Simulated assay, not measured.
Amino acid sequence: MPTGVHLRDVREQLFDAADRVLLRDGPSGLTSRAVTAEAGCAKGVLHRHFADFDAFLAELVLDRVNRMDAQAAALRDAAGTGPVAGNLTGALTALFGSVAVAIVALVTFRDELRARLRETWPAGVPVLTEAAIMIAGYLAAERDLGRLAPDAEVDALAPTLIGTAHLLFADRTGPAPDPEAVRKAVMNVIGPALPG
């Protein structure tokens, strides 16, 4: 690897490289050497910016969770427009079509990473927990608009939708489920909560 080359926004370059390695090779292929090779920098660059590899991974996970804010805002803004199932299908497909499924596997795969995340994220898998909060917020908005039954249990529906979608998208080596399969799964979960 070349040395002495100035890198701009090193953290972001390393995070993006980690995403690519994670998507291509899975959690077992995600090493500091794989990340720095993918980023085109010397291995020492990662260790100059992070205490160790698990600190890097914890920051990666939290960064990717924070990026969900824009998706959550867009989903909340969709409340009252288009079909509820269509909005959920799009949101779940975008969520699980990203690096999120691979991050769930990574958190499950690495004990030290889970321990580090517990320092700032006390329960659950950060990406899935944040996604459930995002979906629950959207469902609550739709319920307030009368597009879901007044007694719809959004705090139960949201994690059910997240779990269902995660199972649909969990096989990173196979083809992604088609939108109709995702929509059918969404309808199976929210159908009883739809008015009429």
Rank of each mutant, 00 (worst) to 15 (best):
residue 145 L to V: 01
residue 192 P to Q: 09
residue 164 T to M: 13
residue 13 Q to G: 13
residue 172 R to N: 03
residue 66 N to L: 05
residue 121 W to I: 03
residue 183 R to V: 00
residue 90 G to H: 00
residue 55 A to I: 02
residue 28 S to R: 09
residue 171 D to L: 05
residue 43 K to Y: 10
residue 122 P to C: 03
residue 75 L to R: 01
residue 103 I to M: 08
residue 116 R to G: 01
residue 37 A to D: 11
residue 102 A to L: 07
residue 176 A to P: 05
residue 179 P to I: 06
residue 137 G to D: 13
residue 113 L to C: 01
residue 36 T to F: 06
residue 66 N to E: 14
residue 144 D to Y: 01
residue 101 V to T: 14
residue 54 D to F: 12
residue 64 R to V: 01
residue 188 N to C: 10
residue 83 P to E: 12
residue 98 S to N: 08
residue 81 T to L: 08
residue 193 A to D: 08
residue 156 A to W: 13
residue 115 A to H: 11
residue 78 A to H: 09
residue 6 H to N: 12
residue 132 A to M: 02
residue 75 L to K: 05
residue 177 P to D: 09
residue 132 A to T: 07
residue 103 I to K: 06
residue 83 P to Y: 00
residue 58 A to T: 08
residue 68 M to F: 08
residue 2 P to S: 11
residue 36 T to Q: 05
residue 138 Y to I: 05
residue 51 A to N: 02
residue 26 G to H: 04
residue 4 G to I: 14
residue 101 V to G: 15
residue 27 P to K: 03
residue 13 Q to I: 10
residue 133 I to H: 15
residue 15 F to K: 03
residue 37 A to W: 06
residue 25 D to A: 14
residue 100 A to S: 13
residue 106 L to T: 03
residue 157 L to Y: 09
residue 10 V to K: 11
residue 120 T to G: 07
residue 178 D to M: 03
residue 185 A to E: 11
residue 182 V to T: 11
residue 52 D to W: 12
residue 130 E to Y: 15
residue 11 R to T: 15
residue 59 E to Y: 02
residue 75 L to M: 03
residue 93 T to K: 04
residue 151 D to M: 06
residue 36 T to A: 05
